[in-house]
Design a protein around this nucleic acid. Structure first.
Lengths: 335, 335
DNA sequence: AAAACCAACGACAACGTTGTAGCAAATAAA
DNA sequence: TTTATTTGCTACAACGTTGTCGTTGGTTTT
């Protein structure tokens, strides 16, 4: 069922029908109603690719993220989708699986009008950003969230990672920790660095000498991470506090503590960035820095649609910073 | 950068260029190489909507699911995306938020060639299926997974819900439970009924009289659910076992037990369908029936692409059933 | 050497829309 | 009454591809 057939059924030219459907002032009310009724009767729907081709707009955005099985990215998609649905846009999902090559391949797919805009959070691996620069050169509206590329000229939605790095570290200090380890991930990621800088700042503020042996550079390899953490716990001056920059490292720490029969929070206190819904039900319940993931999605999508809808507003380079919240639970409780 | 410009740069007709790019036998190897080189140099990418319009294929599939912040649907998307990426397809995500009206609106969007196929899991609310019938009539390849529509003629990928209903119930019985409550959700859903039938069958097998007061019809309203569960625990013959058909009801049970100072598993044992990654770290660790979510996504997508790629194979109405696994943990431990 | 054939390319008509330009008839202004 | 203007509709040319059908020259067959 296309315009031509619909027009034939109505004995009208297909341009008249097209205009009637889009409520053009050139068409009489009587004809419009006739067309609308027939369109409904025959269940006519415009062909999206024909329309997109003609209008040079796809009414689609892409969301490029590392993974979807994740308590942070899940709600973000939710937020993006809620705005997209309001605006009548469609949402394509692309997963990089933390692989820069995949990220590059995906950005290539998005260069030729498939989408009107892109929301993106970088993979852990991404060190080089020429593929992102290419997107900017093609003038495709682009908004980064959380894991941003600082050198790319695009709006960014982040959380107050530096401050939260401070807050989390101070929370451990206030609860009696003196040898606080920082479990870092992906040195390329801006969030990782900001969180670590907050950690270092807090130590400085409280006159604790930073110890490079307490800063672990973890990777995507979980087994390796566990070995590193185990080594950390076995060194002479075992840490009494763990600040994990991501959830999975905190869970790894839980596992290692169980293995080594260390008790949380008596022997070690643990805090991490996490949006886990069941943090309160862990054993022990996990103290977290929780990011406003849903709001980040909505905020980012709102900015993206501003860019998409009135192009040329490149001055709209707003960097939005939302606040995360520290939720203290038993894993950091003073004994 | 389009074909016309590329052709001009090469001093060739654009049909020649088009054929060269698609490796047609009509074009000499020398020309092909020249075209390929120039295309790379000028970073030419085919316009997807023009190509789709011409070929009447969108190279895109839709995934329609209730929600994305979910340890089941997350891995499913992962599985689907992995197959889609292999096949060079794009993935559109649509969330129904368990709302039948949204589900209907979404299916309408998918009627006119936007996608070549659909993977779908129904919303809790979906009782009527005429909107799904419409998809079938439009001959859009459609595969259901997990929450299927039994009366729609389409391939379905499910898990052995009935058997697992039996297994979970027997697990509770074996650990000493005699008054087992079933926390059901959404009576419209096939999975809910199958799980409950398994529960009833297990009771029968072990000569336990089913008690309607122990079967709770929960809904999307969390506060209401909690009230129901609280009432359940306050009745004269308090249940000593809880079989929750979904994870969130198990967590609600955990909360109510904490409120009423009931201890799991001493006072009540709890088991539920769940793909939570941290089930082992809950307090107490949660016994679960875990579905092979990622595999379901891959399996479903594989079937979908068979349908998409050779249309007319409607005999391909395979109903695939994958097995879930019962993982016993402390929440059902015999005291 | 004429007939048949093939290899390599170009012209062109779709695919289904949309917006601009055109064209009658009806209405308003001169 | 003639000339503008408006109203309501149609014709048509894009948008960027792709596949069919021609059209060349050159090579092989008989």
């Amino acid at each position: 069922m296309n315009l031509k057939e619909l027009a034939k059924a109505l004995n009208l030219s297909f341009s008249t029908v097209s205009k009637a459907l889009r409520d053009s002032h050139e068409i009489s009310v009587a004809t419009k109603n006739r067309v609308l009724a027939k369109a409904k009767e025959l269940n006519y729907q415009v062909n999206p690719q024909a329309s997109s081709l003609r209008k040079q707009k796809s009414k689609t955005i892409a969301v490029v993220i590392p993974e979807v099985v994740n308590d942070f990215f899940g709600p973000v998609i939710n937020g993006i989708e809620s705005i997209a649905q309001e605006k009548g846009y469609h949402v394509l999902i692309y997963l990089t699986h933390e692989d820069m090559q995949k990220e590059i391949a995906i950005t290539k797919l998005l260069q030729n009008g498939r989408v009107d805009g892109i929301m993106m959070s970088l993979s852990e691996e991404t060190s080089d950003t020429t593929h992102l620069q290419a997107l900017r050169e093609n003038e495709i509206p682009l908004v980064f969230f959380d894991r941003i590329a600082e050198d790319i000229d695009a709006p960014k939605v982040t959380t107050d990672d530096y401050n939260c790095g401070i807050k989390a570290t101070e929370h451990l200090i206030e609860n009696g920790c003196t040898r606080i380890a920082f479990l870092s991930i992906a040195p390329n990621l801006s969030i990782s660095n900001k969180r670590m800088n907050g950690y270092l700042e807090a130590l400085k503020k409280h006159n604790i000498k930073p110890d490079n042996g307490l800063i672990l550079s973890c990777t995507g390899d979980e087994a390796k991470n566990k070995t590193l953490i185990k080594q950390l716990f076995k060194r002479k001056n075992r840490p009494d506090g763990i600040f994990a920059s991501v959830e999975k490292l905190a869970i790894a720490a839980y596992e290692i503590c169980a293995e080594l029969t260390l008790t949380i929070p008596q022997d070690v206190k643990v805090i991490c960035f996490s949006n886990m819904q069941t943090a309160a039900w862990l054993n022990p319940s996990l103290s977290t820095i929780t990011q406003p993931a849903y709001e980040m999605g909505r905020e980012g999508a709102s900015i993206l649609f501003k860019l998409v809808e009135k192009k040329g507003h490149h001055f709209l380079l707003e960097n939005t910073v939302l606040n995360s919240a520290l939720v203290a639970r038993n894993s950091t409780k003073r004994s």
